[in-house]
Design a protein around this nucleic acid. Structure first.
Lengths: 275, 275
DNA sequence: ATGCCTTACGTTATACGTAATTATT
DNA sequence: AATAATTACGTATAACGTAAGGCAT
């Protein structure tokens, strides 16, 4: 039986020029390598070396064998790499979402149920998510609208309500709800990655959205100031931007989003596990 | 180190469905095969099987591995086959000739000098031979004309003289030479494979060329009859068609051919060995 | 209860290293 | 003399088979 180790040794002999040098390079004794190459020749039924008493060099067939051996070893390495990647892909659950906050919740739920699997999360708009779900890029997606599409499962997952957190002394802090425009020209602390809230923010231009890229910084600023700040029913607890504050829901049309969980029908088991 | 034996075993497991069946088919014990597959998984760093206590089946990655393993083993087999063919090609000396008789002489000489090498002989016309020599199909060729072509070596090799062997009592048997037409309408025993003598025979149509496909039969007929028979300086001794006969050279233009030995310049050593 | 896989243990077989031999530079 | 390859021989490692155990059908 030809063995891959023998092919590696053959290549090393070609690289080093002599069996002795190759043996040393392979941390093997000369006799062992000599015998290994003799076995290879027997198994192939072909002479690979020109044997002079003092010098053993590859012959024409041997040179050809080296080239082919390289190809074989490469193909084995390719195989191993492909299998590793495939296994990694199969062991990760890829989720996509059009909103950040519900994705955290979903990821947390999955991490709890599948502690040995890797999670990958991606943000995107609902159309891109649907395409990705269909093509296998995602196993689960969260969309901002119900989906009725053959081959896909869909159900309501959660709802997110955008609020403004105000210091208790703020004139609007006692209201059950307000419209964003009622804040007038006040500056509002805003997280940079506002994603799903893009519409409402763009509909309400104002002198200063104090955009922060870091959640911790934003929380610090909330604590250190009296400035209004966006939050939602899903983010409030996580980032503690509501400590000592009052969160007043926004009654604007785009301030409330219902998220839907979608999966392929072939993934029904996973889908139902999350219900 | 991944070993080819493991890949073969993996394929067998896929074919047989269970490790037990595969082990029996491989003349191996179950535990040995189980361990071998475990090693393979470790070496690849990937799980190939779904292990239930009672049932061990290939998983998705395993199925992929089987497919790739088949490819690897095929490539190894291809390699071995190519090397064997290459070795065979290198160990044979292929000669081509436009004439049968000088080819025998050349083959005999080569067989003596290279007793461990295989000889292959082919007949063809000089143009085909030259093409074959250039492209590596032949290492040596015998042509019926001198060749001056860059990259090729050429020298006179031998001369063949066509004769007619006659019984001593034949009226022409005392002549130093005759022309073929002088035999009138007499039948002549002729070997089927007259090759280089095609021209002279076609120029001298006669009622009966007694064409024989078997050399031994022809020799027998010569001994058993008084019929004239073709021979040449190169065939006379070999086939004993001249015993008790007189060979009279033909003086026709096409009855004498000079053969030239040609080789590639890269084969100068072999070429000069034959001088 | 039977079949199939895995783990544990003792053994065998195969390949290794050391040493000796030979030939070549 | 030195280097390199091969052969011979004792040893060690690694894989094997047998036996035992466990789970599922």
């Amino acid at each position: 039986m030809i063995e891959l180790a023998q092919l590696k040794q053959l290549i090393r002999v070609s690289e080093e020029g002599t069996i002795s040098a190759a043996a040393e390079s392979l941390h093997l004794s000369q006799p062992a390598l000599t015998r290994s190459m003799q076995r290879l020749e027997n198994e192939l039924g072909v002479a690979l070396f020109d044997r002079k008493r003092n010098r053993t060099a590859l012959n024409a067939v041997g040179e050809m064998a080296v080239a082919r051996a390289r190809g074989v070893l490469d193909s084995v390495e390719d195989m191993a790499e492909e299998l590793r990647q495939c296994a990694a892909r199969l062991s990760t659950i890829a989720i996509g979402s059009c909103g950040t906050a519900p994705m955290w919740d979903l990821a947390a739920e999955l991490a709890e149920r599948f502690p040995d699997r890797t999670l990958s999360t991606e943000l995107g708009d609902t159309d891109a998510l649907l395409a990705g779900l269909t093509h296998g890029r995602y196993r689960l997606i969260l969309t901002d609208r119900a989906v009725e599409q053959p081959g896909l499962l869909c159900r309501k997952y959660t709802q997110e309500q955008l609020c403004v957190t105000l210091p208790p002394e703020h004139p609007l802090s006692t209201r059950a709800s307000i419209r964003l425009e009622e804040l007038g020209e006040e500056s509002i602390l805003t997280f940079q990655d506002y994603g799903i809230w893009k519409r409402i923010i763009e509909k309400n231009p104002r002198p200063h959205y104090l955009v922060q890229s870091d959640r911790a910084t934003l929380a610090e600023l909330v604590r250190a100031s009296r400035l209004p700040c966006f939050s939602s029913n899903l983010t409030a607890f996580r980032f503690r931007t509501t400590v000592g504050r009052v969160s007043v829901p926004l009654s604007d049309e785009d301030a409330s989003v219902t998220f839907y969980l979608c999966a392929r029908e072939s993934d029904q088991a996973l889908f139902e596990l999350l219900c």
